[in-house]
């Protein structure tokens, strides 16, 4: 069962997304800010990270940069979740090292397809 690390500060979003992902058969680990996200990524070794961009303590871009820089976590695909769907945000997310990005509000089938695409690239765990 693939493990997804969900880094999201908003409680409702976290709740919704984690439950719906779990229903789809994913194991979900959660972090509430960027710093916790980086820590959990290292300790939990998830198969994929869903990273909200606007986070307290450390924002999503910085967290992604750190994860991509560290050797243990660099291979974990990151999907950026952003509330702003402007092209500038897309570029910014990709710049930080995200493998893909999705806009809020979350369209679950769309997100799932992106998750599966990125997980499909992984070597068998």
């Amino acid at each position: 069962m693939p493990k997804i690390l969900l880094v999201e500060d908003n409680e409702m979003n976290r709740d919704m997304l984690s439950r719906r992902l779990q229903r789809r058969g994913y194991e979900v680990v959660m972090a509430v800010d960027g710093q916790e996200g980086v820590a959990l990524a290292q300790s939990e070794a998830p198969d994929l990270i869903l990273m909200d961009m606007s986070l307290p303590v450390m924002d999503g871009w910085e967290a992604t940069r750190q994860l991509k820089a560290a050797s243990e976590t660099t291979s974990i695909p990151v999907i950026a979740l952003t509330a702003h769907a402007m092209s500038g945000d897309r570029e910014k997310a990709m710049e930080a090292g995200c493998d893909d990005y999705d806009a809020k509000p979350i369209d679950l089938p769309r997100l799932l397809a992106k998750i599966e695409a990125l997980l499909g690239k992984q070597p068998p765990s």
Partner: peptide
């Protein structure tokens, strides 16, 4: 932008989830 979308996301998301 952010403030208004957040609760809306909740409405949309939870209603979808409840449907499921």
């Amino acid at each position: 932008s952010h403030e208004l979308r957040t609760p809306l996301n909740a409405i949309i998301g939870y209603s979808e989830m409840l449907q499921e």
